[in-house]
């Protein structure tokens, strides 16, 4: 764990071996939660662990031996995170009130006729200004 790529590469350390699945997940939950509680924002886990006094062995003590007696609390917090997770897209799609924000007009189902596409290499792309103007002129002359 706590390896890092990029400008300051660092090999991961072996944290524990021969774990059954339940214990493995328990350790991962504890480590992630402990990291969230103690790391700086956006801090790499490698830097985080290097800055911990005692480094890897301290972390092993906290996670495996529960030396701070916070293991159950960390697991409970992870449970809360998992339990309260929601996909915001799905939530929005199920909420008619929220869906209203995605209509262009409050009083019409029409779309914005200024949004135009042209085909570039068999894919749609936003129309360039001249193509757009031409398309709008066609519409206006039809409706005139």
């Amino acid at each position: 764990m706590c390896g890092n790529g990029g400008m300051k590469p660092r090999h991961g350390d072996l944290f524990a071996t021969d774990l059954d699945k339940a214990t493995l997940l328990q350790y991962i939950d504890r480590i992630l939660m402990f990291y969230i509680k103690t790391a700086e924002r956006l801090q790499r886990t490698s830097v985080w662990m290097d800055n911990l006094e005692g480094g890897l062995s301290y972390l092993q003590d906290v996670i495996i031996n529960d030396s701070l007696n916070i293991g159950a609390e960390l697991e409970q917090q992870m449970e809360t995170v998992i339990g309260s997770y929601q996909c915001e897209w799905k939530t929005t799609l199920e909420d008619p009130q929220a869906l209203k924000r995605f209509r262009h007009f409050v009083n019409s189902d029409n779309a914005d006729d200024n949004i135009r596409f042209e085909e570039v290499r068999q894919q749609i792309a936003p129309a360039t200004a001249p193509v757009k103007a031409e398309a709008i002129n066609i519409i206006s002359s039809r409706s005139a």
């Binding site: 924000r101 262009h104 007009f105 409050v106 009083n107 019409s108």
Partner: peptide, 22 residues
Amino acid sequence: SICPASELVGNAGICALIRQQQ
């Protein structure tokens, strides 16, 4: 007449189509 007042969003905007104008 564009929409019921309940369709207005407080401190935000909506768009209405009025005589083909936005």
